[in-house]
Computed example of a mutant assay.
Amino acid sequence: MDNICVIGEREVAMGFKLIGINDTFIVDINEAALKLREIFSSGKYNVILASQSIQKYLKEDELNLYNTSINPLVVFIPVPGVTEEESVYELAKRILGIDIGD
């Protein structure tokens, strides 16, 4: 899992660190968009897992870039306890391009 990183709140980053992703970045939400830009442009990672809460701090063109990027692939993951979560079905459709629900 060398080419995967996680950026987000402590709960998000620590959860992924526990399953073996060593490159985790715990960020204050006010600095998260800047850190995501830095990581994205570094070319070091193939997959960037970012807290979904970062999305509201991004400009529309940045969000479109991240949502359509393949290398690196940027996946916005739900934050535990946040009610505005993307469903698993919507996430699979957006990331994988397949509809797994009815």
Rank of each mutant, 00 (worst) to 15 (best):
I39R: 10
G15Y: 06
Q52M: 13
G15P: 07
D2K: 14
K17M: 10
E31K: 13
D28P: 01
N30R: 12
S53A: 11
I29A: 07
C5H: 06
I26F: 06
E86D: 12
S53M: 11
V74T: 09
A13Y: 08
N46K: 15
K35L: 11
M1P: 10
I77E: 11
V74M: 02
Q55I: 11
S69C: 00
L73C: 09
V88E: 12
P80Y: 10
E90D: 13
P72L: 07
L96S: 02
G8R: 01
R94T: 12
I77K: 11
I100H: 08
T83G: 07
E62M: 02
Y89A: 13
K17R: 11
D28R: 05
S69T: 10
A33C: 11
S87I: 09
E86C: 08
E31W: 06
R37K: 15
I48H: 06
G20S: 00
F25R: 04
K93V: 07
E38D: 13
V27L: 01
K17N: 13
D102G: 10
L73G: 03
G101Q: 12
S69E: 05
L91M: 14
I4L: 06
I39V: 15
I29V: 04
S41H: 13
V82W: 03
I26N: 04
F76M: 02
L18I: 08
Y57M: 01
D102Y: 07
L58M: 06
K17A: 15
D2N: 15
A13W: 05
I95W: 06
I4R: 05
M1G: 14
E84D: 14
L34Y: 13
N46A: 12
M1S: 13
V74Q: 04
A13H: 08
E84Y: 02
K35D: 09
D2A: 12
K59A: 00
L63P: 06
F40N: 12
I77L: 13
I21A: 09
T68N: 14
L36M: 05
G8P: 01
N71K: 14
S69D: 09
D102I: 01
P80H: 07
C5M: 05
I77M: 13
S51D: 15
L58F: 09
D23F: 06
F76K: 02
D102K: 07
V27C: 08
L34A: 12
T68P: 00
I7K: 05
I29E: 08
I48T: 04
V88C: 09
N71Y: 11
V79W: 02
I54V: 12
L18N: 10
P72M: 06
N3Q: 14
N22Y: 07
A13Q: 04
F25C: 00
F25Q: 02
Y57N: 08
Y57F: 14
N3C: 05
S42K: 14
E9R: 10
I7Q: 01
I26R: 02
I100K: 04
Q55H: 04
V27R: 07
N71F: 09
V6A: 05
L91T: 15
G15N: 03
I70Y: 00
I95F: 03
I54A: 11
I54F: 10
A50E: 11
Y57C: 04
P80R: 00
G8M: 05
L34E: 12
V88L: 14
E60R: 00
I70Q: 08
